[in-house]
Nucleic acid binder design. Structure first.
Lengths: 217, 217
DNA sequence: AGGAAGTTGAGGAACATCCTCCGTTTCGGA
DNA sequence: TCCGAAACGGAGGATGTTCCTCAACTTCCT
């Protein structure tokens, strides 16, 4: 194992580091990747310079804050696969993911751009799981055949964006429209035609537009 | 009738006014209300001052640009009501509205905040029409009972936001998710529970978040 | 105690947006 | 044709935002 820290941090530095991560979590939760390192510093009750010393780029901070929480999403996916009913597993996964992302816009931004940053590793774990979740529901015959795993991030992006926009007045509103979409995902003889499938590249291109860039300049 | 122009404009001024409106349409179409009057001026090949002289506020320009197009949406709604099938009328209205808004983000921004600006008049025409469209589909039994007219702007906002985000790579992508939602809007015995209805105020509050403010400061 | 490690936050650089102002140009009626 | 009113242009000041550095100061640890 390679320890990233060559030298142990001084005690005060370590304390500040933790404070910063905690503050970053709070700030990112409401403002998403659009949050500023200055924001984070003030929230942590620490000078801006301290933040920049510890986390030279926003990306480094994001990584420190969200790695664990993204791993939680892997667990969520595994649970979906373990559910007796493929459909219930899928829907539950959707709901719980949406709930997590609705309550933490930073997590949402991180999850939707997993392929970038240093989260690619987690993304590589997630893809096959998601694939299985979808395949299983297809096999069960409950998920409409023309829906694919690539629809998942797009739907989540839409729904959680609404969650953000309604957070102030009706924080749970997104559930209504998630339900609507879930009902639209059921296999049914008289469903309309969804048109051509998405590709992986399409998804990534769209996600890039849905999430503010980490480097603003 | 009250003519707004007390004096006729000089010929060059009139020409420029038209140029500005045309350029504004183009600029708003891609950037929405976030577009700048400076943007519009450059696009029109005209000095910034000219724009500010003719349209002292962004609101005045927006009004000049979108009144006609919003009236087109009234026509659209009337056609929906005239369709033999309530469901088909509703879905067609949805699709055509989405298509218009997807192709013109300024129109979208204007439509979603109709109640503000000077478009309130058009909004007052639209509300009863939308009401009838929805009622008729409810009466027909094809639209799920727990969907209401207030869902319309929210769904449209979500879908057209996606359209914006996918405009560069897959401009027609939104149709896929609109179809998904439309399929979710059908009355069905095993549909999930949508939860509490929206109020008019909820919708307006959410829309305010979905559209950039005309006054940026 | 002393030096290394750490902290601070004011402030400069690099933008973006808004909108005014006045020297110049153009129009159109006399 | 001419001239005054109308219109134009666009540089630039005011304001705001974000990023990040740096030099003076403080804290830790041996």
């Amino acid at each position: 194992m390679t320890e990233t820290q060559v030298r142990p941090l001084r005690r005060d530095a370590q304390r500040n580091r933790e404070r910063i991560i905690e503050a970053a979590h709070e700030v990112f939760a409401t403002r998403g990747f659009a949050a500023t390192l200055d924001d984070v510093a003030h929230h942590a009750g620490v000078g801006v310079g301290t933040v920049y010393r510890r986390f030279p780029t926003k990306e480094a901070l994001v990584e420190a804050v969200f790695t664990d929480r993204l791993e939680d999403m892997i667990t969520l996916a595994e649970e979906a696969l373990a559910a007796p009913s493929a459909w219930d597993g899928l829907v539950d996964f959707f709901r719980r993911a949406a709930r997590m992302h609705a309550g933490d816009r930073g997590l949402r931004d991180a999850a939707l751009t997993m392929d970038q940053h240093h989260f690619a590793r987690i993304g590589e774990l997630m893809v096959p799981l998601l694939h299985q979740i979808i395949d299983r529901a297809h096999a069960e015959g409950t998920l409409r055949a023309d829906a694919s795993m690539h629809d998942f991030p797009i739907i989540l992006a839409m729904i959680t964006d609404l969650a953000q926009n309604s957070a102030a007045c009706r924080p749970e509103l997104y559930e209504r429209y998630l339900q609507l979409i879930v009902d639209g995902l059921r296999a049914r003889p008289d469903n309309g035609d969804l048109g051509p499938q998405l590709t992986e590249d399409d998804v990534q291109a769209v996600m890039k537009e849905c999430v503010p860039p980490l480097k603003s300049r």
